[in-house]
């Protein structure tokens, strides 16, 4: 295997509250290879964004990386200073959030924002940077890019703004992109455009992508591998087709089963009882045990072992096998 772009090892993100220290991310490990899209899925509060924010060094007060390591292209980055991390963001790591307006300055023309980012990270003259800004906008499919560089963010539609953010994330040619729900706020037709764009850029440039989403359909169509998170832990990880069609963790199985698309022709949707526990009230054994139809005393008593990168696929005492799904 080629050397991964991103390696996360036993990552722990803590939240210090007045009453306790909570683990929003608990001992998570995974790699992303060049040109690979890793989908990170799981329900609201699973810790997907916390893990992403840890990688880009955007955790601030009550949150912190309490343990583990983050490596980017063979270099350890979880212990870098704020300033070094800020430079790495943009140069080596591009970031796309759900709301494009968090990444754009409303008062600055988008061309100037692009030029500023390009000149900060690449040794180019103003002229060259301007030319590059236009080609970056063309590449993400903004029509009449040479004219649109003079527009302000509010003059674009939501979908166009998200394209501008992707252009901004990509203009310094980073090796990793963290996209946190990049299409959640968009209409399906625009979502399809943005996803096709991300896939094309990743294929053409060999960029590694961490795609955080709660939409199993988006993951199926976009990701090569998928990591399923539950209550801060990695429940399951593997090639996307294997995980979605042949889940090994009861949570993944339940998640897939409860999507309406899985119930075509059925009267009722399959549902998982209950909801994800709050971090302050995590069960002592497997965090999924109160909702799991296979849970035994052992599950209630002891948490299943954490997944180590490259080994094992599901953190479950009784991983589902193909033959016992019936």
């Amino acid at each position: 295997m080629t050397e991964p772009i991103l390696s996360i090892r036993n990552l722990v993100v803590e939240i210090k509250t007045r009453h306790a220290i909570l683990k929003a991310v608990d001992c998570v490990s995974y790699d992303i290879a060049p040109g690979e899209i890793l989908g990170v899925v799981g329900e609201s509060g699973a810790g997907k964004s916390m893990a992403g924010n840890a990688v880009i060094g955007l955790l601030s007060k009550p949150f912190s990386v309490a343990d583990g390591e983050i490596w980017l292209k063979g270099r350890r980055i979880d212990n870098l200073s704020r300033e070094k991390m800020r430079r790495l963001r943009g140069k080596e790591i591009g970031v796309v959030f759900q709301d494009p307006l968090t990444s754009l300055n409303p008062l600055i023309r988008i061309g100037d924002q692009l030029v500023e980012t390009i000149m900060e990270h690449l040794k180019l003259s103003k002229k060259e940077a301007e030319r590059r800004a236009i080609s970056a906008l063309e590449e993400v499919g903004i029509p009449a890019a040479a004219k649109r560089v003079n527009s302000y963010p509010h003059e674009f539609s939501g979908g166009m703004r998200q394209r501008v953010v992707i252009a901004l994330a990509l203009c310094a040619e980073p090796s990793l992109i963290i996209a946190d729900e990049p299409t959640t706020a968009l209409d399906v037709s625009v979502q399809a455009q943005i996803i096709a764009l991300l896939k094309r850029l990743c294929r053409e440039r060999g960029t590694a992508v961490m795609l955080i989403t709660h939409d199993m359909g988006v993951v199926a169509e976009t990701a090569n591998r998928v990591a399923v998170m539950y209550a801060g832990r990695l429940a399951e990880i593997g090639p996307v087709r294997d995980v979605l069609t042949n889940p090994k963790h009861p949570y993944t199985d339940g998640l897939m089963g409860s999507t309406p698309a899985a119930a075509i022709g059925l009267e009722k949707l399959r549902q998982i009882p209950g909801s994800m526990p709050r971090l302050a009230r995590l069960p002592k054994g497997c965090a999924f045990s109160p909702r799991c139809n296979r849970a035994t005393d052992k599950c209630v008593q002891d948490p299943p072992p954490d997944l180590t990168a490259g080994e094992g696929y599901a953190a479950c005492w009784y991983s589902l096998k193909t033959e016992c799904t019936g």
């Binding site: 399906v188 976009t222 087709r241």
Partner: peptide, 11 residues
């Protein structure tokens, strides 16, 4: 254009 849960690698 709606994503499909079995749309692996669909372009």
């Amino acid at each position: 254009s709606a994503p499909k849960i079995d749309g692996f690698g669909r372009e």
